[in-house]
Amino acid sequence: MENTIAVKVDDLTVAYNYKPVLWDIDLEIPEGVLMAIVGPNGAGKSTLIKAILGILKPIAGSVSIYGKPYEKQRQLVAYVPQKGSVDWDFPTTALDVVMMGTYGSLGWIKRPGQKEKKAALEALEKVGMLAFKGRQISQLSGGQQQRIFLARALVQNASIYFMDEPFQGVDASTEIAIINILKALRKAGKTVIVVHHDLQTVPEYFDWVTFLNVKKIATGPVKDIFNDDNLTKTYGINYKVSIQE
């Protein structure tokens, strides 16, 4: 397989109020991988994703999606933010939140119609949330909210998916449901990048991994680089995980 690079990050430095939280990141993510980004709290994982997606402006460096700047490639990218980043008391329904995923392809001013609604309903079906389509979003459980976010990304029908902690606060069965959807995406040739905290499940869920803590520690295939050495470098403490072969 000739490796196409889906996402390329060059010398990226991102700061909040002139205090850099990501230093000089170089990263190449090959097309078709299911990649975990791991690192301690405050390592800059969310910041990295936001900078790639143009939500934050880096103070140095550049990002390209299939060789072009993000602004030209928006349609190829879908994003699932960290769950706590939105106001779940906002007056809207599950279906409406999923519809928001279609706004990007509509562009400014144009409004969603039947086609967009149908796509949103299909996405809800895929994540097993069709029955909840009319439910106000604050009346969903944490795992259900996460599924709604996932459906919203699916409806974007992108090539590259960025997900910030999609497993946060979900039970075992939802976690399995979500990972199966992610694996199906990879099978369909999509690139999926996931911020992940549960190190135990990295080898089982992912085939690619990036260690991040302010700087990039390592990136590559899980089977080659997911080891105690990199974990210790990333988390600072002497880290031991047992990886089953």
Binding site: G54, V86, M100, G107
Partner: peptide, 15 residues
């Protein structure tokens, strides 16, 4: 609506 509910999504979609 989208930028009030989810600023990050709005930005990533180009709004």
């Amino acid at each position: 609506k989208v930028s009030t509910f989810d600023k990050g999504l709005a930005a990533s979609l180009g709004f």
